[in-house]
């Protein structure tokens, strides 16, 4: 079972707050949602966990989204950690301008 299509916009919005975009790419540009969709074994966890965010989460303001994610991290720390962990993996395990800004340069 994949992640429900109606939850994908919420996933996209949530990952974009976990690693926001500023002068450097964030979860959106680095395709964290697509990375997470590549793990069908976690889809049940995502379906259950994302359903705990407000139904209009993806349409809310960034501040309201951050409040909802903080609430989720205390209500369901296990799921929040999965979401956080995979978002960060998507962002940092591939070459990007974020690597450049950190100073990690692959020379060979």
């Amino acid at each position: 079972m994949p992640i429900d299509a109606h939850l994908v916009p919420i996933l996209r919005a949530a990952t974009a707050r976990i690693v926001p975009t500023d002068d450097l790419p964030g979860a959106a540009e680095l395709r964290a949602t697509e990375f997470i969709l590549g793990f069908p074994e976690y889809a049940d966890s995502y379906n259950a966990g994302l359903a705990k965010l407000p139904a209009d989460f993806d349409l809310s303001t960034p501040d309201a989204q951050d409040s909802a994610l903080s609430q989720l991290s205390s209500d369901d720390p296990h799921f929040f950690d999965l979401l956080r962990r995979q978002t960060i993996e998507a962002v940092l395990a591939q070459p990007s301008a974020l690597w450049d800004a950190m100073g990690f340069v692959v020379t060979a």
Partner: peptide, 26 residues
């Protein structure tokens, strides 16, 4: 590696997500 740094080499007081996490890491 950057992802190993983020998983294993951040101090206990480091932020864990959001703008603060991103700024801390960079």
């Amino acid at each position: 590696l950057p992802i190993i740094y983020a998983k294993r080499a951040l101090p206990p007081h480091a932020p864990t997500w959001g703008d603060e996490w991103k700024n801390f890491v960079r």
